[in-house]
Design a protein around this nucleic acid. Structure first.
Lengths: 149, 149
DNA sequence: ATGTATGCAAACGGTTTGCACGGTC
DNA sequence: GACCGTGCAAACCGTTTGCATACAT
């Protein structure tokens, strides 16, 4: 998943755009590339700052529009963060998130025994399921230590 | 949990406020009472509109401040909603949430086999865990039907 | 040539804040 | 009486939108 070469994933990206009739622009490619490279679940602002190094004239509106578009197309994911600005990640396999309430760092983790669990009967007749996330919140180790000082 | 009489829960509330040195005001009592009565995970605005019927002079700032305060004190919970305004619920036992991406309705559900699961080893050394939520998102039955029309 | 995507700037909605007054303890 | 909590108004931040231009197809 996350181990495919970047150029392969960019080629996939272009194909999926064509399938959906989305134009392949300079800006979209760089935004997607930046998200592929990122491991820190960046905010819109963070993606903007990074892409700006390659495309100094890009506007943050375009980053907002592009990230929303790619999320609607299922090519990237928006993280379930309750507070603060929206954060995104590329689609890199099944995993869940740990979120620090103090520094807002987001860390991936795996939980195979959960993934294997059958969905509870209660949700069967609710409707169409699109996302199933576990979000664990708390204070990360680093922030815990800083607090003691 | 949710089955205790309202006056008992309000008495508990007053006690917990005293323990924490929080003043027991008219506004705080009514905001908490409204959240106890609610089953729809109301937004700040919704709580404001309801409490306003009893206290017409209340301001929405107070509702914001009170809900944030009660959440920090662990007396109520803020729901993990990624998009849109913050939503709250009273502390009424272990459960999880279904969220409709179209109408934004939030529904509680239980998942005992998940609750019984041992936490994955990966999170052991992360830090202090405060919340462990499952958020299932999608389109509720009602919205699915409306879409077909 | 067509129509979508972009950049700019202005508007927007939810939320937070500074301040003086009012209420609780 | 001391001090926290409140209401008011203004500021704030992330995000969205209308518009004219630029670009991909």
């Amino acid at each position: 998943m996350g181990c495919l070469a970047v150029h392969t994933r960019l080629a996939d990206f272009e194909n999926r755009c064509r399938e959906k009739g989305l134009k392949i622009t300079h800006q979209r490619l760089e935004i997607y590339r930046e998200l592929l490279a990122a491991t820190d679940h960046p905010s819109v602002e963070a993606v903007f700052q990074r892409v700006r190094k390659r495309i100094p004239t890009i506007s943050i509106d375009t980053v907002y529009r592009t990230l929303a578009l790619l999320e609607q197309s299922g090519m990237i994911h928006r993280i379930q963060t309750a507070e603060g600005p929206a954060r995104y990640e590329s689609d890199h396999g099944l995993h869940h998130h740990l979120i620090c309430n103090r520094c807002h760092e987001v860390v991936d983790f795996n939980w195979e025994s959960f993934d294997a669990l059958a969905p509870p009967p209660a949700i069967k007749d609710w409707g169409l399921i699109q996302g199933k996330n576990i979000v664990i919140t708390g204070i990360c180790q680093q922030c815990c230590e800083q607090q003691l000082k």
